[in-house]
Design a binder for these strands. Structure first.
Lengths: 334, 334
DNA sequence: TTGTAGGCGTTATCAT
DNA sequence: ATGATAACGCCTACAA
């Protein structure tokens, strides 16, 4: 690899001059500019990111930490981040960490070692110790948390969909359609995003003075979403007083539910309405097409990087919480 | 950030000693080891990746360049790469480049600047200029091409599924089941992977002395795979002499085809067999479940990184081509 | 077993 | 407008 010194020698100038041309901000005579450009061209010179990194604070790269087992929605967010960051000359480093606290820590250290300009942190579940560390980290390097992991008063940025309000909106829609026995399929385990969606379901019922019936609320395993959705739905339709609508925490549950209903010969949406959450592409590929509460994942990604850019450029900000609103996509199941 | 010097000072030793402890290979007295470890702990010392990178050749990171618009299979490969690389202490940098030749070039330069230890290159279509550049690059930094882009004699590594053989196997299966009028839905445009699969279709026909009927071969737009699959299937079933089986270049075409067949009241698999290619998760989520020619994407990713590791560790190898074999997954549509 | 000193490629400061 | 020089944090002969 040729260095700045090689270029300087070839162009017959000092390396200072070359460096100045590289950064582009200083005044240089046109003739030297040409000479140097020519030399760079000939040597196919590429500046060393490392040498630069040693001198300057920023590295024009951001790290994205995510849970290993990620779903379609997440990869859509990633694309949103990557696209936007590339547009601004940033490079994205991806780390799948799993939910192991120590693993996450180790990756964070590695990223600090690489002096990334910012960290975007995904997780399904909160780990107090890590959040504390992130808060500390955020004082030096912007951190954005991409889920409903944070407590009210914590000094950390976050970007996320308002799952509670959106679920409430969805359930309200079902109620407006005259449905009164609305089941909810939620995730088994500690998913913060799942919990707030569930709260939205409860809120909608309360708002409309519909009594909460625990028998209508089922927990399904997130890992085998399809089968799980199928099975709990089976329980639902065998009840003496079955639901006339099913709202789910995520589309995959809803699709599992649909499979069950269709197999049982129950007409959708006539007998039972079904509404998912996420708007994964699959929704419009299956028949009947699934109505769902939509979060535009790509937009979430874009928003996250845009916020990151602001945080990088103006450290004064410290942190900012962004709550994005979603909307209902009505298709054939409601 | 504290430096190696800070640690040395605090521990009362020289920075050389600290450095040696860091790399772990030299003999140190236990007492100094303890002192230094304690100092590192207290200062929360993290070595600078950049300073290290300036001194040593490798950076323990690889770059993955991919086309912007990627599908589910690709993200599965990515996970395979990421998982395996993380296991070996490597970090993965992701760049979505689009198919624009210059954009790809620019990213490549950026990655060289970052002294990545290897580059994994995805693309749907071949661009001669870039391939030439990659061949040149490969002399210094291992490059693996992840698709059937390369010509026979080019000095570049690649990892890919043998799409031709696998398609041939699939069509053979249909023939063995007694099907004789087998349609093929291929992709419109220049997809190298698509072309070799098509060759497999032709090969199977020839092998069994079945005349190639151009009317049974349809081209569908890859971008709207579902609708496209639907539409060309519509044409197929309106023929005077319709097919008794449909093989497709990709699962999404097959799912589009299935939608059409079911809507038309044609029984699958009784009247028409349908076989996809890729084995995306969706295959087993739809009804009837789609039979398909399977490539284990995760395994492809793992294999790619393992090869990368070999190439990094032994530059003598130069390059290696790996052709992975897939298998048929028989479900309900055949 | 531990320390000294030089250099990796770049940017920034201060001269010229 | 251009150049000499120091520094960034680390590794590595070589010396002690």
């Amino acid at each position: 690899m040729s260095t700045i010194y090689d270029v300087a020698k070839r162009a017959g100038v000092s390396k200072t001059t070359v460096s100045k041309i590289l950064s582009g901000k200083e005044n240089v005579r046109q003739s030297t500019l040409d000479k140097v450009n020519k030399a760079m061209e000939e040597l196919n010179y590429i500046p060393s990111h490392f040498a630069q990194g040693m001198r300057v604070a920023h590295t024009k790269s951001i790290a994205v930490l995510l849970p290993e087992q990620y779903n379609y929605g997440l990869s859509e967010i990633l694309r949103g981040i990557e696209e936007t960051s590339a547009m601004h000359g940033y490079t994205m480093i991806v780390c799948s960490t799993g939910i192991d606290a120590n693993m996450q820590m180790q990756y964070l250290r590695e990223m600090i070692s690489r002096q990334v300009d910012g960290i975007i942190f995904f997780s399904y579940a909160r780990i107090d110790k890590n959040i504390e560390y992130l808060i500390e980290l955020n004082k030096k390097t912007p951190v954005i948390v991409m889920d409903a992991l944070l407590h009210e008063n914590e000094a950390l940025s976050s970007v996320r969909i308002d799952g509670e309000k959106l679920t409430q909106k969805a359930v309200q829609y079902l109620i407006d359609k005259g449905r009164t026995r609305i089941a909810y399929i939620k995730a088994l385990g500690k998913y913060t995003a799942g919990f707030e969606r569930y709260l939205g379901y409860c809120a909608a019922l309360e708002e409309n003075h519909i009594a909460y019936d625990p028998k209508l609320v089922k927990e399904a395993d997130f890992k085998n979403h399809l089968t799980a959705g199928y099975e709990v739905t089976h329980e639902l339709i065998e009840m003496k007083d079955p639901p006339d609508a099913i709202m789910t925490m995520t589309d995959m549950f809803a699709i599992g539910a649909l499979n069950c209903l269709l197999e049982a010969g129950i007409r959708v949406p006539e007998e039972i309405n079904v509404m998912g959450f996420d708007n994964i592409p699959l929704c419009s590929w299956i028949r009947p097409k699934l109505s769902t509460a939509s979060q535009n994942q790509h937009h979430v990604g874009r928003t996250a990087f845009q916020l990151m850019l602001e945080l990088i450029q103006d450290p004064q900000i410290g942190f900012r919480r962004m709550l994005l609103q979603g909307e209902l996509v009505i298709r054939d199941t409601t």
